[in-house]
Write a protein that binds this DNA or RNA. Structure first.
Lengths: 167, 167
DNA sequence: ACAACCAGTTGCAAAAAGCAATCACTTGGA
DNA sequence: TCCAAGTGATTGCTTTTTGCAACTGGTTGT
């Protein structure tokens, strides 16, 4: 059970934790979609994750201290997943990855809009977003004022979807 | 052969390309270790990559346009792998991943020093480094003057190794 | 009472990773 | 000239991970 690490390199260690095809997808949906329940992550998944894989990933992320799980008072079986600070700080990784994908890969318009805004906003916007995530997941009070980055990203996405529908 | 994408999300598309345990390790060794030959990547790998996996990853990275391969004039069988602009622009992703790993995972001192310097230098240092990489891999002339970031990172690493040896 | 909802688990097949040995060729030195 | 060392891989094999579909056992609302 004592997992041996391949090396003590930070990049390698990070890849051992989130270097697979699904972990960061789950984190992405928690961050940008605010999906907090198992079913929510399962059925709204753009990519169609299987339930056993989702289950296994959530377990790993729990073990690694990237997310936590709490009981939902409204439903005895429902669990609420929240990001830890360690999980929230994966946002810059996701942002850079998204920027790279947006620039070089065949991204669809509606799914690319968030990557664009995040890229244009830069580290300052990321920090604001992380501040909001700390409020949403850790119950800390927001430091920055003004409109929510989360809401702005969502609104931009909805606008693109609406525009495409009209055509 | 026409691979179907799981979705048009930039994060997902990026993960489909480099979201595995080895691709970014190879890129890391090319960038930070300046390893340009198959054998070089194979035998100096900190993590001990197997030859068939290295072979397969290099093929994928070639197909994706992240690296190119040229014949080495000094040896008919030797190939020289170089980064493309698309590959060079993975540096910010590596830097963020390294920063996260450095902060939260059991990184060894000698392998963590580069992550620390890269983090402290921030996007400005990354840009300088990418400028150097364009010189090393694409034959473009460097725009910025002054000491090489590549050399600084290497020197810092050597210094830590030397210090540990003395003890 | 019962259908819909919830968080998973199980069993099985396919794909990928990992390991050791081998291959076909090139180079440099005795 | 010959042969060891070096080159970039490939092959065959086992183990591990992924992916899919069906299922389980409990909860909630009507």
């Amino acid at each position: 059970m004592d997992e041996q690490h391949r090396s003590g390199c930070p990049i390698n260690l990070a890849l051992e934790v989130v270097g697979d095809r699904w972990s960061l997808i789950v984190i992405r949906d928690i961050i940008f979609g605010n999906r907090r329940h198992f079913r929510d992550l399962l059925t709204h998944s753009e990519e169609g994750i299987a339930s056993n894989i989702l289950s296994s990933r959530l377990k790993t992320l729990l073990d690694e201290g990237i997310i936590t799980r709490a009981d939902d008072p409204t439903h005895k079986q429902k669990g609420v997943y929240s990001l830890t600070e360690k999980g929230i700080e994966l946002l810059p990784v996701l942002a850079q990855l998204a920027a790279w994908g947006y620039k070089y890969l065949p991204v669809t318009e509606e799914l690319g809009i968030r990557a664009r805004l995040l890229h244009e906003g830069g580290p300052k916007l990321w920090a604001e977003f992380m501040d909001e995530l700390r409020e949403m997941h850790l119950g800390q009070k927001r430091k920055h004022k003004g409109p929510s980055v989360f809401a702005k990203l969502r609104a931009a996405y909805e606008a693109v979807v609406a525009k495409k529908k009209r055509k």
